Simulated scan of single mutants.
Amino acid sequence: MAAEAMGLRERKKRQTALRIYRTAIALFAEKGFDAVSVQEIADDAEVSKMTVFNYFGSKEDLVFKPMVEHFSDAARAVRDRACGESAVDAVRRQFLEMVEGRDPSVGLHGEPFARRIREVIMKTPELMERAYVESEKGARQLADQLAQETGDATLALIAAATLTAARNALVEEHHRRLDGGEAVDEVAADAAERAHRAFDLIAAGLNGYAVKA
């Protein structure tokens, strides 16, 4: 019974967090990030202001908290790669898996809510700055992982910056085409081919780099 009660509490907590999140994004999209107060979000989500801050530490976190882990995707791919797999191939493999799964974090999701989040960020300078900072943190994590493995911090920074830039460029291309009116299926149809071309180019320059022993 205790386990069942805990499971019920956890489900309710997740449902509350999701309700607050969706309410916040809807209000930000309608009125603009700066024009919406946390109290207004709390009122619309039918929770207290304190509850909002219990789930989301700041107003910016109402946008970024559910997605912030994805800025470390490339670092995780490299950290968890199999023996014999290079850093480039690990990041490539992970990205292709996300393309196949139509992961929102790589810009391939047709659900309007996912598109709305990007619109809110793109229209808000402070959120754009936060996105840049989080991206740089992810690149630094990747560089630290590579430096730890190879012992060469300079080359690790170069490799991490290159891999991060390639991922960002591919994701931005997905968004650009969707913003231009193309359907998700149409963009996804050649996404894997574009990704292979991008990572092939990097692999040529980092030939044999950071192959896990």
Score class of each variant (00 low, 15 high):
1 M>G: 15
6 M>I: 14
6 M>L: 15
8 L>Q: 15
8 L>V: 14
8 L>A: 15
8 L>P: 02
12 K>T: 08
12 K>Y: 10
18 L>Y: 11
18 L>H: 08
19 R>W: 01
21 Y>I: 02
22 R>I: 03
22 R>A: 03
26 A>I: 00
26 A>M: 06
27 L>M: 14
27 L>I: 03
28 F>G: 04
28 F>Q: 02
29 A>H: 13
30 E>R: 15
31 K>E: 13
38 V>T: 14
39 Q>D: 07
40 E>M: 03
42 A>M: 02
43 D>S: 11
43 D>M: 05
44 D>Q: 13
45 A>H: 09
49 K>S: 12
50 M>S: 14
51 T>G: 04
51 T>M: 09
53 F>V: 06
53 F>S: 01
53 F>H: 11
55 Y>W: 10
57 G>C: 03
59 K>F: 11
59 K>W: 10
59 K>C: 07
61 D>F: 02
61 D>K: 12
63 V>P: 04
64 F>W: 12
66 P>M: 09
68 V>E: 14
69 E>S: 13
70 H>Q: 12
70 H>V: 00
71 F>D: 05
74 A>M: 12
75 A>N: 04
76 R>L: 12
76 R>K: 15
77 A>F: 13
81 R>P: 03
81 R>A: 04
83 C>G: 00
83 C>Y: 00
86 S>M: 05
88 V>A: 05
89 D>L: 08
93 R>H: 10
96 L>D: 09
97 E>P: 08
99 V>R: 07
105 S>I: 13
106 V>R: 05
111 E>T: 07
111 E>C: 07
113 F>T: 10
115 R>P: 00
116 R>C: 06
120 V>F: 10
121 I>V: 15
126 E>T: 05
127 L>Q: 06
127 L>R: 06
129 E>N: 12
134 E>N: 11
134 E>Y: 11
134 E>T: 01
134 E>L: 15
138 G>Q: 07
138 G>I: 04
138 G>S: 00
139 A>Y: 03
139 A>R: 13
141 Q>I: 01
143 A>N: 02
144 D>C: 03
144 D>L: 10
146 L>T: 02
146 L>F: 04
148 Q>P: 00
150 T>Y: 00
155 L>I: 06
155 L>V: 00
157 L>F: 00
158 I>T: 01
158 I>Y: 05
161 A>N: 03
162 T>C: 08
163 L>D: 01
164 T>G: 08
164 T>V: 05
165 A>F: 02
166 A>F: 02
170 L>A: 10
174 H>M: 05
174 H>C: 09
175 H>R: 15
175 H>N: 09
176 R>F: 12
181 G>E: 09
182 E>V: 02
183 A>C: 04
184 V>R: 12
187 V>C: 11
194 R>G: 06
196 H>Y: 12
196 H>T: 10
197 R>N: 07
197 R>F: 10
200 D>W: 10
204 A>K: 11
206 L>Q: 01
207 N>R: 09
208 G>D: 04
211 V>Q: 01
